[in-house]
């Protein structure tokens, strides 16, 4: 496995609180890695540090061989890394295509584009294409996303990330608010993203989801990596043990 993204010894302090105490994390090309840990283990902080929201106090973060520690969020986006946040960050009054292209609107060709006129048809067609590729069924792509179900909104957010992420999609609790059939659909979506050659980082509390979709699992506890597991070779008891501190893998750091 070649590491696409590798964080090593990352430290992040907020005042007196040390959220990350030398945390490490790695994702290979085309694999789904679940990042697990109890509340306060540092999952969100680690992800935000990778995405450029926070700058690390110490440690290194390398993506495709070069250091990305301390880059701005937009510079990280530019590398082909997208994050689906827990609150989805959709504009509820806009339709699916408008949300997919939010902030990256396509302009019409020629003079009209010079005046800032949108290429609405082209964006709508691209949106339908993306949704078809991901086998996401949106009942009415021209309806405001607020009218879609929770699972469909999740799919729109994932589709947007996939549209712009060539290399890596990070998902923060994508199934937390969903019912069982919707969760299954999002997990299928994650598999299809991986099959398209992208890597996926999945932050989740749901053991069944993680067991179902991930290739590997990395566990954080108190700001440090305490276990690196291959999903096929582990079980729920071992993961819970790592999360709660009952069991620590010796060479995880």
């Amino acid at each position: 496995m070649t590491a696409l993204l590798e964080a090593r010894g990352v430290t992040k302090r907020f005042g007196a609180v040390e959220a990350l105490r030398g945390a490490s994390f790695a994702v290979g090309e085309g694999e789904v890695v679940a990042l697990m840990g109890d509340n306060g283990a540092g999952k969100s902080t680690l992800i935000k540090t990778i995405c450029g929201v926070y700058a690390p106090d110490a440690g290194e973060i390398r993506f495709a061989g070069s250091s990305i520690a301390g880059l701005s969020p937009s510079a990280v986006h530019g590398l082909g890394i997208e994050t689906v946040y827990q609150d989805l960050a959709l504009a509820p009054d806009l339709d699916t295509a408008a949300n997919l292209f939010l902030g990256r609107e396509l302009l019409a060709a020629g003079l009209l584009g010079r005046f800032g006129v949108l290429a609405k048809k082209r964006m709508a067609a691209r949106a339908v294409q993306v949704l078809t590729d991901l086998k996401v069924a949106i009942k009415d792509p021209t309806a405001p996303v607020a009218t879609l179900s929770g699972g469909q909104q999740q799919s729109v957010a994932v589709a947007r990330a996939v549209t712009w992420a060539d290399r890596l999609v990070i998902m923060d609790e994508p199934t937390a608010a969903l019912g069982v059939p919707q969760t299954r659909a999002v997990l299928d979506l994650i598999r299809r993203v991986r099959d398209s050659g992208r890597s996926v980082v999945l932050i989740s509390h749901s053991l069944p989801d993680v067991m179902a979709v991930s290739d590997r699992i990395e566990v954080l506890r108190l700001g440090r990596r305490v276990a690196r597991l291959v999903t096929r070779e582990t079980d729920e008891a071992q993961i819970v043990g790592a999360m709660t501190g009952a069991w620590t893998q010796e060479d995880a750091e």
């Binding site: 969020p73 937009s74 986006h77 946040y85 609150d87 989805l88 960050a89 959709l90 504009a91 509820p92 009054d93 806009l94 408008a98 939010l102 902030g103 990256r104 609107e105 302009l107 005046f115 800032g116 006129v117 949108l118 609405k120």
Partner: peptide
């Protein structure tokens, strides 16, 4: 026309709809 067919108009709606989402999208 500006409101209905341009990027400026689209972003006006986006900001009113969810300013945080617009910000994260680089607007």
């Amino acid at each position: 026309l500006v409101l209905g067919v341009t990027r400026y108009g689209r972003r006006t709606y986006a900001i009113g709809s969810n300013a945080e989402a617009a910000r994260r999208a680089g607007i």
